[in-house]
Design a protein around this nucleic acid. Structure first.
Lengths: 184, 184
DNA sequence: GAACAATACATCGGCTACGATGTATCGCGC
DNA sequence: GCGCGATACATCGTAGCCGATGTATTGTTC
């Protein structure tokens, strides 16, 4: 399955786990979550809903629309909830490394109600952030911001480092809390 | 044209502006630049090269491979260089808002040799980062990290804020330098 | 009362992504 | 001398992306 599809489907499953919603409302929530960075087209959302319905992960009931066309209220099935947890517990590598996808995982990680399973996912992100990697190399050696002439490329490295540090410190704090919760 | 394609093509044009390269070497450079976040498949790169060649943006010469198949050394044409500058000067909105794409733009922005044109692009990013937006809303009001219960969603907001601040401070510094350069 | 925006869903078609697979050469280790 | 990995490029097919467009209703603005 395509990677974008995976993330969109995760968002659909995640939002529906909270409450049954119709497509149009789902669209607005997804737009709020990821739309300011990368908008989702209607013609991408509705086919995705159909796929999930066909796979038995969600069910639809028709309700009269509020001053408009009838709504298709969508509800997660038991398989849908199980699938959501499976996807949250075992995200693909790209869902860990790509910030957009990672944020989507984080947005719904609370649905994975086992603290140690949540911690495992955070640890994968931590391992990724810790490995010494750059955007620019001299042979095999990753270059640091100070070694790059070009101010724009230097900016990339400066910003990436700041993000990395902020996130690592958040990860350490949160993992500490999760481990304490797991010990209860 | 598709958005991913746009970014891949920008990277190809950008790397070739520095020096003629063959496809395999191009692939390694792109992998270094964006691969740790989002790998590019060979079967995506080669068709992209073909598209650009067909559009007259690059030319290929065949050279014997070093212990392997013959290399197709790729060179930017005059139109290719013009097109690169056009794309750098007028990136689509999504190239400004999506961090992955934004970093790709930054990686080659130096090829836009007019400081005030470079500053214009940075200003678009600054305007985006400044607008009050969140990932979560109460009605229309964006929620701040402190107002969110869920520790993972809180994490998203905390990290996004740290990134935003680091980047804004870099943008301000760099814009200052660019404006000084433009005044000369 | 006519246009227009918002609500609400849907399809079509062209293009793109990318895993799988194929082709070919060279060097290295066993 | 045989497999394996690196170099180097290419195609095919499935499936997803998304702009354009369509349909229908209600409320609001000129």
């Amino acid at each position: 399955m395509r990677h974008n599809a995976v993330m969109l489907e995760l968002a659909i499953l995640g939002f529906l786990h909270d409450a049954p919603l119709h497509g149009y409302e789902l669209r607005k929530r997804i737009a709020a979550l990821t739309g300011h960075v990368k908008p989702v087209a209607e013609s991408t959302l509705y086919p995705a809903i159909k796929r999930l319905e066909k796979a038995g992960l969600l069910a639809r009931r028709t309700r009269p629309g509020v001053g408009a066309a009838p709504r298709h209220v969508l509800t997660l099935t038991a398989e849908g909830r199980a699938e959501l947890r499976r996807r949250l517990a075992q995200p693909a590598d790209i869902d860990i490394t790509d910030e957009n996808r990672w944020f989507t995982v984080l947005a719904f990680l609370r649905h994975l109600d086992d603290p140690s399973a949540q911690a495992e996912v955070l640890e994968r992100r931590m391992a990724f952030l810790r490995q010494p990697s750059s955007f620019f190399y001299e042979g095999d050696r990753p270059l640091r911001a100070e070694e790059v002439e070009d101010p724009f490329r230097r900016g990339i490295l400066t910003i990436a480092r700041a993000t990395s540090q902020a996130e690592l410190s958040w990860l350490r704090r949160t993992l500490h809390t999760l481990r304490a919760a797991a010990d209860d």
